[in-house]
Amino acid sequence: MTSEYIKPIPIIQTWTEQFWKAAKEHKLLIQVCEDCQTRIFYPKKVCPECWSSNLTWEEASGKGKVYSFSVMQDMVEPKFWADIPYVLAMVDLEEGIRLMTRIVACDPEAVEIDMEVEVVFEDITKDCALPFFKPAA
């Protein structure tokens, strides 16, 4: 699988390693500032609210709602051709942060704004998994 994966792999920073390590174990983490309790996304080196370096992680419930989405059908890079059609989406987590993701495990035509979804991890290489979402059970 590793040698065949031609799509882009996240370019990880030292302060985001934890997030991706957890993702590999199929856990979705949210970075939290211990000083001002801000939930931070995407993860930063210091808190973007108060510039504190006291940052920690909490596990997200993995539940959220679709903020918006697009069914990608044409004019994508050749490396994504095999995926067409795929549902690119922004999902608002219960914890109040928004991520870019994909909606999977359902008919693209069935996706709607505000649809309830839950995280499902896609192992793309032996070292990396991406948080996708599927319709909530």
Partner: peptide
């Protein structure tokens, strides 16, 4: 490159999402 691109994000895709919203 870390939080958008690996999911197959393109300019058309992000503007499509803004349009739908």
């Amino acid at each position: 490159l870390q939080w958008e691109y690996p999911f197959g994000t393109t300019y058309n895709g992000i503007l499509a999402m803004m349009t739908r919203r």
